[in-house]
C-alpha cells in the first residue's frame, strides 16, 4: 500500500536514469527507446511531454503507469520502489488515458466508466458489484466530462470525441492523484480539444490533480502546462517552463524544421507557427 498519500511534499512520480528498449535484452540495449531519463514530477503540476514521432513520449508515459518496466534505472511511486505495490495499488493513485480506445463489445458508457472502480475492489469476492459510492464517483466524473447524458448509449455507437471523454471520465473514476494522458486531443475537433484541455486544467486547479500529458500540439501544451519536457530520440533535450522550452533554438533541431515563435495575444505564452 502507498503510505504517503497525505505527505504532499513527496513527489508522486520519480524516474532515475531510466533506460528502456523493446524486445529481447540485447536488442533492447542496442537501440533503447528511452536513454538515461531522470525526471521528478511534483505534486499538483501539469507537465507536458513533447517530441517528434518515435521520440519515446508514449513509452515514458507507460513506464510511469508500470505498463512497461524499464531494463535499467529506478521508478518510484510516492517515494517507494515499484515492488512495494500491486498493479491495482498503483491504479488507485495513477490513472492512464490511452491514445485510442478500441472496443469490440457493446458495453454502455455507464459500464465503461464504472470499470474505473476496479482497483478499489480488487480483493472483493464474488462478482464485485459497484456500490452507491462507486456510482456516485462515476456519475460525478461523467458530469465533469459532459457524458452523463450518454450513460446508456453503447460505447461502440458514440463518436470518437464522446468515447474519448468517456475514457477520461473512467480515469477520473479511479480517483487518481496523478492523471497520465497520451495525446488526449489527437482525435478531437477544435471545440472538444479546448473542452478537454479546460476540464483538465480545472481539475488541476480545483482538486490539485497532478497531470502528465503527451502532446503533438505545441500550442495547446504551451497554453495549459506549467512545465514542459522535450524528448529527442529517447533523451531529454530541454525541460522547464513553456518560455524556456518553446524557443526556436530547442525546437528546430528536434523537429528538423524552422519555426516561428511569438506570444499568444491573450495569455502571453509562447506560440509556435510554421514559416511560409
Amino acid at each position: 500500500m502507498i503510505q504517503h498519500r497525505e505527505t504532499s511534499n513527496v513527489p508522486p512520480l520519480r524516474l532515475t536514469d531510466v533506460t528502456f528498449g523493446f524486445g529481447r535484452k540485447e536488442s533492447a540495449a542496442q537501440s533503447p527507446v528511452l536513454r538515461n531519463v531522470s525526471l521528478t514530477i511534483a505534486a499538483g503540476e501539469v507537465l507536458g511531454i513533447l517530441g517528434p514521432n518515435g521520440s519515446g513520449k508514449s513509452t515514458l508515459l507507460k513506464i510511469l503507469m508500470r505498463i512497461l518496466v524499464p531494463q535499467q534505472g529506478t521508478v518510484e511511486w510516492f517515494g517507494q520502489p515499484p515492488d512495494a505495490f500491486s498493479q491495482s495499488d498503483i491504479a488507485r493513485y495513477v490513472a492512464f488515458v490511452p491514445q485510442e480506445t478500441q472496443q469490440a463489445f457493446p458495453f454502455t458508457i455507464n459500464e465503461m466508466v464504472l470499470m474505473g472502480r476496479y482497483p478499489h475492489h480488487d480483493r472483493t469476492w464474488g462478482l464485485g458489484w459497484e456500490g452507491s459510492h462507486d456510482r456516485a464517483v462515476a456519475m460525478q466524473a461523467m458530469r465533469d466530462l459532459d457524458v452523463a447524458h450518454l450513460g446508456t448509449r453503447l460505447i461502440t455507437n458514440v463518436s470518437g470525441g464522446e468515447r474519448q471523454r468517456a475514457v477520461v471520465a473512467r480515469a477520473l473514476t479511479q480517483e487518481p492523484e496523478v492523471l497520465l494522458l497520451d495525446e488526449p486531443t489527437a482525435f478531437l475537433d477544435l471545440h472538444h480539444q479546448l473542452d478537454i484541455a479546460r476540464i483538465i486544467r480545472r481539475l488541476n486547479r480545483e482538486r490539485g490533480l497532478t497531470v502528465v500529458l503527451v502532446s503533438h500540439d505545441l500550442n495547446l501544451a504551451s497554453q495549459y502546462c506549467d512545465r514542459l519536457l522535450l524528448l529527442r530520440e529517447g533523451e531529454i533535450v530541454a525541460m522547464g517552463t513553456p518560455e524556456d522550452v518553446i524557443v526556436a533554438a530547442s525546437l528546430e533541431p528536434v523537429y528538423g524544421c524552422s519555426v516561428l515563435v511569438d506570444r499568444h495575444p491573450q495569455s502571453g505564452r509562447p506560440r509556435v507557427t510554421l514559416p511560409v
Binding site: I67, S88, D89, F96, T101, Q102, Y118, R170
Partner: peptide
C-alpha cells in the same frame, strides 16, 4: 471463469488499458 468476470470486462479494452486499471 465467472470469478474472473470483472477482469475479463477490462481485458476487452486491451492488455495495456487493463493493466493501467489495475488488472494483473
Amino acid at each position: 471463469l465467472v470469478a474472473q468476470a470483472r477482469s475479463l470486462n477490462l481485458l476487452t479494452l486491451g492488455e495495456e488499458a487493463a493493466r493501467s486499471l489495475g488488472v494483473e
